[in-house]
Amino acid sequence: MTTPSTVKQGEPGTSVPQTVPLTQLIHLMAEYQKLGTHRQTFRAAAPTSDTFVRGCGIVAGGFVAVGAICAVVGAYPGSIAVGLLALVPASMGFFWSRRNRRNRAARLDLFESGMTVYRKGEKVAGFRWDTAEVHQRVIPFQNSAPSDYSFEMSGPGGAEATFDDTLFGDARDWGKAIQSAITATQLPRAVTAIDDGATVDFGEIGLSLEALTFRGNTFAWEQIQLIDARSGLVRMKVDGNWVSLTPVGKIPNFYIFNELAERLRQAAAEEMSAAETDDVQPPIEVSDAKAPGTDAEAPGTAEASEAAQIEQAPAEPLRTPEVTDDAVTEPTGPADTPWRKRKAGVSISSD
């Protein structure tokens, strides 16, 4: 859902238009989308934080200094040539700063149930946490410094917005807030769908209780040892071999995808471990009964015979660990039914 950036309303009996303030437009959008209580506002990043403009200024200043030295020593042609070269970075910095001035009116507002985005000359775009899709180009992991907060938002009705850390300041704050809100809101719904036997799609990748699917290929969870996305490309280790899937930026709501995939992969690994444990047979107890015809005891074996008559405690059978889910009733079908314990709702957290 989007609204015009300004709304002009004429007063009764006059032709003088009135402009609705941006703040009022944002709150009108929030009311229409039922976004709830306002939480936080992020303004456009300060121009001084633009390293590109600063770099252009430094390069242009260097050329000017060289040109001045040439003029002092009488090398006027060289001075003119260096001065012309200085115009190149100076022009680039000038046009880039004009672009930044155009974006100074940009504004990002977070609400209890959604968000709004505004850029000068565009419409106010509104998104709800329960229906929004976010594509993030680079996903920050532990022990790796995030280098890019570039978001592409989309929602019902064709609402779209693109913004990054060069447009809005405090990218770590709004980036984490948006991803956390969407994940917390939509993850339970995705878990329920998978537990009911459906396949949840994330772009070209589909997740179900049985397998991960990608471009017509099916990979059972028992085959997948690891899923990795640190290089910006989602990969998985299948039967000891790495298989490349798709760039992180093409997966909508990546954090939901990652959580579901890890839960299902680990649940399959626990099932396999439990099945292997079931196959282990308890040790056979050796009987202490005497062989026929050996009622007489050999001399000097009375003590050994008495020790043999001591009743031995039976060995305790091995126990099979189970993956349980209090919200799911265990089926009563055949014992060899596959996936009888696997549920996406099993709380197996991933780092």
Rank of each mutant, 00 (worst) to 15 (best):
I26F: 01
A105Q: 14
A159Q: 04
F214N: 13
C56M: 11
S350L: 12
L22E: 04
A229K: 05
V138F: 06
P47G: 02
T277Y: 03
A190I: 06
D228A: 12
P299T: 10
A132S: 06
F151W: 09
D336K: 09
A68H: 05
D288Y: 09
P12L: 10
A313M: 07
W339C: 04
T48C: 00
I224S: 07
F254D: 02
I69V: 14
V286K: 03
G293N: 13
T3N: 11
I69T: 13
R230K: 15
G240A: 11
P47Q: 02
R101A: 07
L233T: 15
I80V: 15
W339F: 15
T192H: 11
F141K: 06
T320D: 07
D130E: 14
S287P: 15
Y32R: 13
L25E: 06
V280R: 04
P338V: 04
E270N: 09
P292Q: 05
A65Y: 06
A105R: 07
F95H: 12
S180Q: 11
T329D: 14
A46M: 10
E160Y: 10
R101F: 01
Q186L: 10
T162W: 00
T41D: 12
Y255E: 15
P247K: 08
V286E: 06
A267K: 01
Q24H: 05
V248W: 00
E306I: 00
I205Q: 07
V73Q: 11
I194V: 08
T329W: 06
K290L: 00
T183I: 10
A275D: 14
A220W: 08
L260D: 03
V238I: 14
A30D: 14
R342H: 02
T337H: 14
C56F: 05
Q223S: 13
T320F: 02
D279T: 07
R342N: 03
A335E: 10
F94Y: 11
I227W: 03
S49W: 01
H38N: 04
D50G: 11
M1S: 07
W242E: 07
G293E: 09
M115K: 00
G249V: 00
